[in-house]
């Protein structure tokens, strides 16, 4: 945050080669951390590396990946969403009650909640509000609504959702297919389409974008609506796996999602995000969170610490690589 990259003028070809290598290394870092975690699991418990093992270990990876993608959209616009966890919980409660009992009402509520996200984007832009505080307030709102809908744990996921999440494709476990699909769709939308470039540009250089005639209000609204959309998908996927809901079910996702985005090579400012990296980051966290630690016989007390340590190690590795990049 302190160091501003300075243009250093023309570089010799060998320097440029080193630079390209460092960039490549940096881009590969999220994938390398995932491979490292996988190798550790394979070494500790070879039997886990199987169709069944992956289905089991990556069970909760789909909702985490979707929540991470949701967080990634706001981060692309230089904002932060501290309410995504409670929002996922709220969506979960709606899914387990309204969406099953009165599908039409349920769909309307979920669409409405995406609309609320879009409105928040507009509000944050028009009044120039700090997103941290607005979403902090919203986290209370979603939690309150979730408790009102489902005062105690219960409800049941709609059958179609249950059968979707229990889908067992041949050869490749469903979570891996889902992760690939999510990464591919979002990568195409945000990195390969022209409006995706505009969306990332709103985080990169607001002033330039607005002088070029693009509406910053619109980009912010779109980014927040996309966050809402993926938040809804995450909540639904979560309930499809857990089958019933609880108002506090998503609370841990806020910090997990931020960590996933950063682990995947995203930056807080400048519109530098990577959808593929974010999904890989989420998978790494999902695997490192419990399967790896269980195989390592780390007591539950220290599992949270291990998450923190993994984050720090990956970021330290990134610093070492970035130093070459400069």
């Amino acid at each position: 945050m302190t160091a501003v990259p300075v243009e250093t003028g023309p570089k010799s070809s060998s320097e440029r080669g080193a630079l390209a290598r460092a960039r490549l290394l940096r881009g590969l870092l999220p994938a390398m951390s995932l491979v490292l975690v996988l190798l550790a699991i394979a070494w500790l418990n070879p039997r886990a590396i199987s169709y069944f093992g992956f289905s089991l270990m990556l069970n909760l990876a789909i909702p985490i990946a979707l929540a991470t993608i949701a967080q990634m959209f706001v981060i692309a616009g230089n904002e932060l969403d501290l309410s995504i966890g409670t929002f996922v919980g709220f969506v979960g409660c709606v899914t387990a009650t309204w969406l099953k009992d009165a599908p039409l009402v349920g769909v309307l509520i979920l669409l409405g909640s995406i609309g609320v996200y879009a409105l928040l984007g507009a509000l944050i832009h028009l009044r120039n509000l700090p997103s941290i505080v607005v979403t902090l307030g919203m986290s209370f709102v979603w939690q309150g609504l979730a408790i009102l809908i489902l005062p105690k744990p219960g409800g049941k996921a709609p059958d179609w959702l249950l059968s979707l999440m229990a889908f067992k494709p041949p050869f490749v476990p469903f979570p891996i297919i889902a992760a690939l699909l999510i990464a591919a769709v979002v990568h195409f939308g945000l990195m390969r389409t022209s409006y995706g470039v505009i969306l990332r540009g709103s985080g990169g250089n607001e002033a330039a974008l607005s002088r070029a005639g693009w509406s910053l209000l619109k980009t912010k609204v779109v980014l927040f609506a996309l966050t809402g959309l993926f938040g809804v998908l995450s909540g639904m996927a979560l309930i499809g796996i857990t089958t019933s809901a609880d108002a506090n079910i998503g609370n841990g996702y806020t910090l997990l999602a931020i960590a996933g985005v950063i682990l995947g090579g995203g930056e807080f400012v400048g519109g530098r995000v990577s959808p593929i990296g974010a999904v890989i980051g989420a998978l790494t966290l999902a695997l490192a969170a419990s399967p790896l630690l269980t195989f390592m016989h780390i007591p539950p007390d220290w599992q949270v610490a291990a998450n923190g340590a993994i984050l720090i190690i990956v970021l330290a590795a990134r610093v070492l690589i970035s130093r070459k990049e400069r």
Binding site: M1, T2, A3, L80, L255, I258, A259, I262, E267, F268, P299, D301, W302, Q303, V304, A305, A306, N307, G308, A309, L311, I312, L315, A316, V319, S322
Partner: peptide, 24 residues
């Protein structure tokens, strides 16, 4: 300072570790 990471992530990672120390 050492990792040149945003304070949000630094204090977040630290809090995970502190939390575990506290639980234990």
């Amino acid at each position: 300072w050492a990792l040149r990471i945003p304070p949000i992530i630094a204090t977040l990672s630290a809090s995970f570790i502190i939390q575990s120390i506290d639980i234990s």
